[in-house]
Simulated assay, not measured.
Amino acid sequence: MKRTIIATVNNTSGVMNRITGLFARRHFNIESITVGMTENPAISRMTFVINVDDERGLDQVIKQLYKQVDVLKVRDITDEAIVARELALIKIVAAPQNRGEISALVEPFRASIVDVGRESITLQVTGDQQKVEALIDLVKPYGIKELARTGITAFKRGTKKSVFDGPKYSIIN
Rank of each mutant, 00 (worst) to 15 (best):
75 R>A: 14
23 F>Q: 05
35 V>I: 15
96 P>Y: 06
24 A>C: 08
147 L>A: 12
93 V>N: 10
80 E>A: 10
127 G>A: 08
57 G>P: 05
138 L>D: 01
40 N>C: 07
55 E>C: 10
73 K>R: 15
46 M>L: 12
135 L>P: 00
43 I>K: 09
88 A>N: 04
68 Q>G: 05
99 R>D: 06
21 G>A: 09
28 F>E: 02
114 V>W: 04
37 M>K: 15
40 N>F: 03
88 A>P: 03
42 A>Q: 11
138 L>R: 04
117 G>H: 09
49 V>Y: 01
101 E>T: 11
69 V>M: 14
131 K>W: 02
28 F>C: 07
113 I>S: 05
105 L>E: 00
147 L>C: 11
53 D>V: 07
49 V>I: 12
91 K>V: 03
141 P>V: 01
51 N>M: 09
82 I>G: 08
22 L>M: 15
145 K>W: 05
138 L>M: 14
105 L>R: 00
52 V>H: 10
111 A>T: 02
152 I>H: 04
103 S>P: 00
147 L>I: 15
102 I>N: 00
25 R>C: 07
94 A>Y: 03
26 R>I: 13
133 E>K: 10
50 I>P: 02
46 M>N: 02
21 G>V: 08
145 K>M: 15
26 R>E: 12
20 T>M: 06
153 T>A: 14
127 G>T: 04
23 F>T: 10
149 R>S: 06
80 E>D: 09
72 L>R: 08
82 I>T: 14
117 G>Q: 13
151 G>W: 06
83 V>N: 08
37 M>H: 14
89 L>S: 07
95 A>T: 13
84 A>E: 12
20 T>V: 13
152 I>Q: 15
27 H>Q: 15
77 I>Q: 02
64 Q>L: 14
70 D>Y: 05
141 P>Y: 00
29 N>S: 15
150 T>D: 08
129 Q>K: 11
90 I>L: 08
47 T>I: 08
62 I>T: 13
122 T>F: 10
42 A>K: 13
29 N>I: 15
34 T>V: 10
102 I>S: 00
84 A>S: 11
146 E>M: 14
114 V>N: 02
19 I>M: 11
36 G>N: 09
37 M>W: 06
19 I>A: 05
114 V>P: 03
112 S>F: 01
76 D>I: 07
134 A>V: 01
123 L>M: 06
86 E>R: 04
106 V>D: 00
22 L>C: 11
43 I>W: 02
